[in-house]
């Protein structure tokens, strides 16, 4: 599962291949869409959730509200079914899906005129940690590199060589996870949110206003 980007994406993987998957791009309805998508994917595979032996969740970086939907869902599934949950960097899923075999970068939309980004040596190998920056501030460092993800398309001036895919897919994330599990289970993150930004510490006027009209 991954809800760190505008895509609400779910896939079921049997260790060798993706059995079923669902991806919907709707930045404002992660909460509504995720569980029905899980249900659809399992039904398509003719299975129920208790057949699942492990969970993989994209931990971001991503805008906070949507990101939390996937993380808390994975944590709740894990607790209810007593199966492990593995975290993967959301950008790693996009990198894996790109299949690019030379140095490149991944950039997703971080809103506020910024992108979440990371560099890769190839589709399986991230170089360093993910970060959040203004496109113009990193354009020079990434000059000449292909850039995968919606962040690249949003800022063509900074990232002229935009590549597919634009959106995250859980199928790719599951594929990457299956490879790592088969190789001994290294390379996972704790299933905790990667926010990369401090919260806005602003108390809105009329905070907590839940008064019925």
């Amino acid at each position: 599962m991954d809800t760190a980007t505008p895509a609400v994406t779910v896939a079921l993987h049997d260790g060798e291949a993706v059995v079923a998957s669902s991806s919907q791009v709707d930045a404002r309805r992660h909460g509504e869409l995720l569980l029905p998508a899980v249900d659809r994917v399992l039904k398509e595979a003719g299975l129920t959730l208790d057949a699942v032996t492990g969970l993989v969740v994209g931990v971001g970086p991503g805008p906070y509200t949507g990101l939390r939907v996937g993380l808390v869902t994975a944590a709740a599934f894990s607790s209810a079914l007593a199966v492990p949950v593995h975290g993967l960097c959301t950008l790693d899923g996009l990198a894996y899906a790109s299949g690019i075999d030379e140095p490149f970068a991944v950039a997703t939309d971080a809103r506020r005129k910024e992108v979440y980004w990371a560099r890769y040596d190839d589709s399986r190998t991230r170089v360093g940690d993910a970060a959040v920056d203004r496109p113009a501030d990193i354009a020079e460092r990434l000059a000449g590199l292909p850039v995968v993800g919606a962040g690249a398309r949003l800022y063509p001036d900074a990232f002229p060589d935009a590549r597919d895919p634009g959106h995250q897919s859980a199928a790719a994330l599951a594929g990457l996870a299956a490879e790592r599990l088969a190789a001994g289970g290294e390379g996972f993150l704790d299933p905790l949110p990667m926010y990369l930004r401090r919260p806005d510490a602003q108390v809105p006027k009329n905070y907590k206003v839940v008064t019925p009209k």
Partner: peptide
């Protein structure tokens, strides 16, 4: 989200 996940699972 947590409630839905528990209920579903």
């Amino acid at each position: 989200s947590a409630a839905k996940a528990y209920a579903y699972a």
